[in-house]
């Protein structure tokens, strides 16, 4: 799949942002006034900024509001509804903390649940696609939720929780990669079923429909960068999980915590790039590209 920078930025930043909102909703850390304002500003910049970035890849961003209508069937629509609900509820809850030094615990709990629901809907957009075997697994929502909770805890300054969640998320990341590498072969979709000609013999793509490229090849048959996948996985693991764990294990300082958060986000962005670049769409079979 083509790794669109807007979608990578969106899923990385908003994942961490909604993770931070989750912990703020639970009152971790229990802050009010200007300190609360600073935490909420970071969370909204990441969550809402990510959502804005995701509209950049639309053909018609001015019609984006129509995407709230199909929540009965579409995970993308559900994501839109959940994200706006989470931002509104957490906005009211944040206003209570910042302006009135009052923690509306029930509202915070609801906002935390909505923030997690948003991350879950994002992950299901990918996990629902049978056409991309690497994504179609319950491990995808598990990984997205673990990364969001770990990144959020890191930003919320919950050191011990963050360390535990980073370990869990790193483990899930490894499992997701391991399963993903065999997912296409295990899916049962190959040249024989794609063309229906497997009963006759070995099928080989002889000539493509056109000499030039097309939307399908650009969007789904992305192959650049796979040769560096192993190196990029190590970079993602080192920046996303190992370095933040080391920095958190050191005696606490704000500089180390900030560096841990930045390193984590950079690592997750690399992992998210691989999430798209390594994903094989079955339509590539028709072009003999699998």
């Amino acid at each position: 799949m083509h790794p669109a920078p807007s979608v990578i930025a969106f899923t990385t930043l908003s994942g961490a942002g909604f993770g931070l909102l989750f912990w703020l909703g639970l009152g971790l850390p229990d802050v009010t006034g200007w300190v609360a304002f600073a935490f909420f500003a970071v969370a909204y910049a990441l969550a809402a900024g990510g959502l804005m970035a995701s509209t950049f890849h639309l053909g018609h961003p001015e019609r984006a509001w129509k995407a709230f209508s199909q929540w009965r069937s579409s995970w993308l629509s559900r994501e839109g509804v959940a994200s706006v609900a989470a931002l509104v509820v957490m906005g009211v809850y944040g206003a209570g903390l910042v302006l009135f030094d009052t923690r509306l615990a029930l509202l915070g709990g609801a906002g935390a649940a909505l923030a997690l629901a948003t991350v879950f809907t994002t992950s299901m957009i990918y996990a629902q696609l049978r056409s991309v075997p690497r994504w179609q697994t319950p491990l995808t929502p598990a990984l997205f939720l673990a990364l969001s909770l770990a990144g959020g805890a890191l930003l919320a300054g919950q050191i011990t929780t963050a360390m535990a969640l980073l370990l869990v998320a790193g483990l899930l990341q490894g499992m997701w990669w391991k399963r993903g590498d065999g997912a296409f072969a295990a899916s049962g979709t190959d040249m024989a079923t794609a063309t229906g000609l497997g009963g006759i013999g070995q099928v080989r793509a002889f000539a493509p429909p056109h000499t030039g490229g097309n939307y399908l090849l650009r969007e789904f048959v992305f192959v650049v960068g796979r040769k560096h996948a192993a190196k990029l996985r190590i970079i993602a693991l080192a920046l996303g999980f190992a370095l933040p764990l080391v920095l958190l294990a050191l005696p606490f300082s704000h500089a180390a915590a900030a560096l841990a958060a930045l390193s984590h986000l950079a690592g997750i962005a690399v992992s998210r790039w691989l999430f798209f670049a390594e994903a094989e769409h079955v339509v590539g079979l028709y072009y003999g590209a699998r």
Binding site: M1, H57, L58, G59, H60, P61, R63, A64, K66, A67, L76, I125, Q128, L129, R130, S131, V132, T189, Y215, L216, E219, F220, H281, V282, V283, Y286
Partner: peptide, 14 residues
């Protein structure tokens, strides 16, 4: 149509 492209992602046939 907002041109999000998700339907093309979901179609296995291109």
């Amino acid at each position: 149509c907002i041109g999000c492209g998700l339907c093309a992602w979901a179609c296995p046939y291109g």
